[in-house]
Design a binder for these strands. Structure first.
Lengths: 267, 267
DNA sequence: AACTGTGATTTGTGATCACTAGAAAGGAGA
DNA sequence: TCTCCTTTCTAGTGATCACAAATCACAGTT
């Protein structure tokens, strides 16, 4: 006899609503909520708030992603499903799917034992990622430069000035702003497929950037960002591309040095 | 009272071995099978066949992938977990994970209703994919051209001559050989991260290539493949890159025309 | 005849259980 | 004390169950 689950330590019970309030993330339901009256234009004569409906594995995915990007998970450490599930207050199932998704995006890796780890970065792999980034982000930034709106450009200037005011010991903030600056330009290109690929690349490199910058301090990007914004102002798409490529290359040199020094110290 | 599963319609029972014979796919276990005797050098004085130990969701993934690439799944049609599970003779669980993985790779797409479909290709998306391919595969092919081994080059010649002998009505074979030719070059570059990204792009474009070639016939690539092989023979990496880029561009023109004609006929 | 509300069926999501393989810990013998 | 074996524990995989949202079918109403 097995009465349908009498006890459980989960915060979310069966009979509680599945829809979770969720952070400020975009809802995945497109437009097919609220179909109540007045047919084809599907208009309602009063306003209602759109319901958020996010799945648990989506939330687990975003939590893990955040932890990876921020450097909270140490490279080489393994992530166990059950521990993560306990931390999130869910069953192992959503975590399993989130991990699988991150493995597919190459942010995580499955060991031969089938455990999942955050892969450590080798200089070789880092070089490869940088070369891909130059090819891909170079192309996308050139496209974005040709289609950027005045609002987006203003926003980039805003981000740049904020970056210059960040204190030298707040490396994580700096990196976040840096990402925002780059992605504002890329977004302007209107290339969603490329966008996801670039995000995947940043996710692979991110944790190691965080670690190396945290130790070595940051002094990167200033010049190239200035060149980038100048190029955008005068609609010089080639200049924008060159600035992005140089930005990636120069940062790569610093990080690579750090990776190699770490390799020596580990040996 | 609920005796632990008396009946089941699955072909694979609990007590049957988990390890499935599997097709000619590479096993995911690295090297840590067979650790029976003679410790540290890990040598065995006789040869044994490596045990295949592939998870069910890996097999489901590869089956689905094959179905997508071959065009067996029509764009726009939805894939239900339970139907796929029944077809594979497993529980829905492995299928669920395989689908999630393919969605992460953008080969499939989740609708707002959370069903999974094979997305149909718009000219816009196709153009984007081609531009990404030119940037990425151009870079990789230049690298590969500089590092290709004589064996790999010989193999490429072999593939090319096989392609020329394929009858005009065997489009699928032609596409398979075409992929083999490209990937042999890319493999030589030794860029595993880029490799996976390129595979993902081919998986996105693949089904639609199949459909359009099947209807329109194929007359693509001959010239560019010749240029490519000539360039490789004389170690001209730039020529190889240009040939690949032209190959992608020219094929894109044909496919794009097909996509647009189809759009009109659908409307 | 078209639309709306209701019930039945389908389908995705999440929880729990069972099973197996590694990993770790503990103990016996040299 | 070290090594090897056994036992125990841990963790991933897959099956099954339960539930809710979506779709479908149908009937009743305007």
């Amino acid at each position: 006899m097995r009465g349908p689950r009498e006890v459980s330590s989960y915060g979310t019970r069966r009979d509680s609503p599945r829809a979770l309030p969720g952070g400020g993330r975009k809802p995945i339901n497109g437009d097919r909520t609220m179909r109540l009256a007045s047919k084809d234009p599907l208009k309602l004569d009063f306003q209602v708030a759109k319901l958020e409906r996010e799945t648990l594995h989506d939330r687990a995915y975003h939590e893990l992603r955040k932890a990876i990007m921020s450097g909270a998970i140490r490279p080489g450490s393994t992530i166990t499903i059950r521990a993560m599930a306990a931390a999130l207050g869910t069953s192992p199932m959503p975590v399993r799917e989130a991990l699988r998704r991150l493995v597919a995006e190459r942010a995580l890796e499955t060991l031969p034992t089938r455990s999942v780890t955050l892969p450590s970065m080798t200089p070789t792999r880092f070089d490869e990622i940088c070369r891909i980034r130059i090819a891909l982000e170079g192309m996308v930034s050139e496209t974005g430069a040709g289609r950027i709106t005045p609002e987006a450009l203003r926003r980039m200037h805003q981000i740049q000035s904020e970056m210059q005011r960040i204190k030298p010991n707040r490396a994580a903030e700096y990196l976040a702003k840096n990402q925002e600056l780059h992605f504002t330009l890329y977004e302007a290109a209107g290339m969603p497929v490329a966008m996801q690929m670039i995000e995947s690349l940043w996710l692979q490199a991110g944790p190691h950037l965080n670690l190396s910058i945290a130790e070595g301090g940051f002094s990167m990007g200033e010049d190239h960002h200035r060149e980038l914004l100048e190029g955008l102002s005068r609609h010089d798409v080639k200049a924008a591309r060159v600035a992005i490529e140089a930005d990636i290359s120069d940062a790569a040199i610093v990080i690579r040095k750090f990776l190699e020094s770490r390799k020596v110290s580990a040996a």
